[in-house]
Amino acid sequence: MRGRLRTTRWVLLAFVVIVAVAVATVYLTAPRPGGRLDPASTSPAGTHALISLLRDHGVEVVTAADADEVARAARPDTLLVIAQTMYLTSGKTVDRLAGLPGDLLLVEPAGLAREKLAPQLTLGKPTEFGGGEPNCELPAAIRAGVTQLGPVNTYTADDVALTSCYDGALVRYHDGNRTVTVVGAGDFLTNSHLLKEGNAALAMNLAGAAPRVIWYAPQYFETSSTGDRKLADLLPRQVHWIVLQLCLVVALLALAQGRRLGPLVAESLPVVVRASETVEGRGRLYRSRRARDRAADALRSAALGRLAPRLGLTAGAAPQAVAAAVAARCGVTANTAGHVLFGPPPASDTELVHLAHQLDDMERQVAQS
């Protein structure tokens, strides 16, 4: 018995270890989605592989999610890598980045980032297949050799001493104490292109030029709020005009499609329903819901509607007058006639049937008198 328990424990322990190893393996090897040049993404467009290589070679890499983290981590001995994404569109953010200390590495900067962070450069002619031999004296490019940069932008400058490599796809110049490096392509830094030709070497040489690197590739729009803004303030101005135009179109369409209400037109029913079927259907409905009070009201109202013209009374005659007139015609007391015509609802189906017979007798006597 003890031997079986011991064997069972070892089997359970081995099972737990296998499950734990499997879970850890799946977690560590699972793809991590993300946007373009995202340092945490293992997708083809991410840069997780480059960040891991830099850290393996002793470079301290700070991945900043927003401009506030960049400002907190910025130091004069730090290389600030600013990778252009679709979310880097705020002029305030770019101005804030321009005032931070340290060298700059701009990856494929768009118009706003290039004008604010590298105003000395002029955008040249884009090239569909960038790369090849460096053809320059920049050590980082010489050690990398032949590369495959893909589609690139090229840059020129007239007012500064510019070191240009790969036909203008990679340039470097000095702005005071700051070294500014601009590369017109970002694909060679990604996970899917890092192993082509000398891309990995060029990426390591450029991004690992300092012992401490801040990698900033924004993956969402940065907005500043004072707490007093409304949701409508966040919408572009064009949206208000679009909504106004849509309202005008809907109003005009309603006027064009609207129809004036004309006189009522009597139309024959598509199916003729006999009165007896209607009465029988309503009676069954009252019975299924045990609505003896409503059935009695319907019987009394119908009887009063037929009796009043024969008695010479109006539809709004007082109950006392109706009871007295019926009593005079039927030879009963006024209290008896009033109880039948205006009394309490019946308590059972038998009483309801009896009430119907009494009303029918009254109508017949009045009609024959």
Results as ranks from 00 to 15, higher is better:
residue 172 R to V: 12
residue 39 P to W: 10
residue 84 Q to V: 08
residue 44 P to W: 05
residue 14 A to W: 10
residue 136 C to D: 08
residue 68 D to Y: 11
residue 7 T to L: 15
residue 286 Y to S: 10
residue 51 I to S: 05
residue 88 L to F: 01
residue 184 G to I: 00
residue 251 A to S: 11
residue 267 E to M: 12
residue 342 F to P: 00
residue 125 K to V: 15
residue 127 T to N: 09
residue 294 R to C: 01
residue 157 A to S: 13
residue 109 P to N: 12
residue 142 I to L: 14
residue 42 T to V: 00
residue 61 V to N: 10
residue 310 R to L: 13
residue 230 K to D: 11
residue 98 A to P: 04
residue 196 K to L: 12
residue 242 I to Y: 10
residue 175 D to I: 01
residue 201 A to T: 13
residue 352 L to D: 03
residue 255 L to I: 12
residue 275 A to W: 13
residue 163 T to H: 02
residue 104 L to T: 02
residue 106 L to F: 12
residue 93 T to P: 00
residue 310 R to M: 13
residue 305 G to P: 04
residue 14 A to Q: 10
residue 226 T to C: 05
residue 7 T to M: 15
residue 23 V to P: 01
residue 299 L to P: 04
residue 224 S to C: 06
residue 220 Y to F: 14
residue 322 V to W: 00
residue 162 L to W: 04
residue 112 L to C: 07
residue 169 A to G: 06
residue 90 S to V: 06
residue 340 V to K: 05
residue 240 H to S: 13
residue 260 R to K: 13
residue 115 E to S: 15
residue 345 P to W: 06
residue 180 V to Y: 02
residue 36 R to E: 10
residue 200 A to G: 08
residue 336 T to R: 00
residue 250 V to S: 10
residue 257 Q to F: 11
residue 251 A to H: 03
residue 55 R to G: 14
residue 58 G to E: 09
residue 369 S to D: 10
residue 160 V to F: 04
residue 288 S to G: 01
residue 71 A to P: 03
residue 367 A to L: 10
residue 78 T to C: 06
residue 308 A to C: 08
residue 285 L to Q: 11
residue 285 L to H: 11
residue 314 T to W: 05
residue 84 Q to I: 08
residue 356 A to R: 09
residue 170 L to C: 07
residue 222 E to H: 14
residue 25 T to I: 09
residue 78 T to D: 02
residue 157 A to P: 07
residue 287 R to H: 09
residue 31 P to G: 13
residue 275 A to N: 14
residue 356 A to K: 06
residue 155 Y to A: 06
residue 23 V to E: 11
residue 308 A to Q: 09
residue 158 D to E: 15
